[in-house]
Write a protein that binds this DNA or RNA. Structure first.
Lengths: 224, 224
DNA sequence: CCATGTGAAGGTATTCACAGCC
DNA sequence: GGCTGTGAATACCTTCACATGG
């Protein structure tokens, strides 16, 4: 099934598989079956095989998948096979945490620039990155930075995105709790932390006496 | 269409609508049409009407929806109509940011306890919450805390979840980059920040000369 | 008239079951 | 024997078009 559009849900799961593989290889394994990977990352084995089938033959029948080869393939598909330099805008509590976050490196993502409007913060170095005045965002294009993380208050989000788009940024991870728009050439993923937590009570079994409206478990991504 | 199972995708969108409504009411509006709300939050108007149709008649034909009434209804459906007390486990960079995060209050979520293994941190007060020794997690059930946020390193995630489950916690938002399991009575949402960012390059238009494999825009939730 | 609410149609993703291959 | 890869069946969600009601 070589020539088939890749379902968005599959694209959403690929990083999950990749994460599992990176841990697996640390544990010294060389090969892994769809069954074993499925258990490890928390999906069904046929889901994994189906997802991989959109790209070509990754595995060996009777054996499984070569962990290293599979990880490399997934990185290529997700375009994580080149190091991507990213800028952070907004070095508040959340922004600082993101600067210190060790998890990005595994996906080839590297925060190399940070911006904040607070004069107190400008010039300070956090986790090896010097905080710059926002006016410097104009020059982002010439610094080989194609990705940005937006961690500014809601009121500043849209104007920040506008500036980033103008500077040639092509992908944005937005933590501000609102919709932001940009030219089609700029892809935006919005991640509202509070909103994720807000989904939780709905799926929680009733506390005390009232009954829960749902019958069974939830197939919703991210919820178990 | 009163008696119909609520699609998970609808449950995922309800917090988006609620967020939009909360901003709208701040702007002094009283009523809003599906069309206007759709534009504001970034979905289609018929999607909104369809979503609401699973619950009953919220709106008035020819007029639209009462913002306040609609927000109250959505909160009731999501079970956000009571204040929920939450515990935070892991007061590192990310945990500290979450403690300071102002966005939870709007959904009735209140972090009232924090735990960390670091003796340096225990006893200190961050954002009005005193950091406690993890042994205190046992008593969570008796403190009217039903929700927990896990922001510990991957290696500590599963044991943390185990302890929380034992203490009677019924909902967990897990920031550790791994699968965690718990008894069925405990609902878990895992949110891996790096993984979200890892999806971005795939959707970004090609940089330089190579061609992008995708044809058009993405219907994937969170991606625009 | 205007905007909601909803059957019906269409599309997409999940799940199954098994053929194919090592 | 064991595990992959995939067509077919099923379930789910989105999209449309319009009847319905203030």
């Amino acid at each position: 099934m070589r020539y088939h559009r890749i379902p968005d849900e599959t694209v959403r799961r690929l990083p999950i598989y990749l994460r599992g593989l990176m841990v697996s290889v640390d544990q010294g394994h060389e090969h892994i079956s769809s069954q074993a990977l499925a258990e490890f990352v928390g999906v069904q084995s046929w889901q994994i095989r189906k997802d991989f089938s959109y790209f070509g033959d990754f595995g060996t029948r009777g054996v499984g998948y070569s962990i290293e080869k599979l990880a490399r393939e997934i990185k290529k598909i997700l375009r994580l096979d080149v190091i991507r330099r990213a800028a952070l805008v907004g070095v508040g509590d959340l922004g600082s945490a993101l600067l210190a976050y060790p998890g990005f490196g595994g996906y080839g993502l590297d925060i190399v620039a940070a911006f904040d409007t607070d004069p107190e913060k400008i010039g300070r170095v956090v986790n090896g990155v010097r905080i710059e005045d926002p006016s410097g965002m104009d020059g982002l294009g010439g610094r080989d930075i194609s990705l940005a993380i937006v961690a500014v208050p809601r009121a500043a989000a849209q104007s920040t995105v506008d500036k980033l788009a103008e500077a040639g940024i092509r992908g944005i991870l937005n933590f501000a709790p609102c919709k932001v728009i940009a030219p089609r050439r700029v892809k935006i993923i919005t991640l509202d932390i509070a909103m994720e937590l807000a989904r939780l009570p709905y799926y929680m079994p009733a506390g005390g006496s009232s009954e829960h409206p749902m019958t069974g478990g939830s197939p919703q991504p991210g919820v178990s």
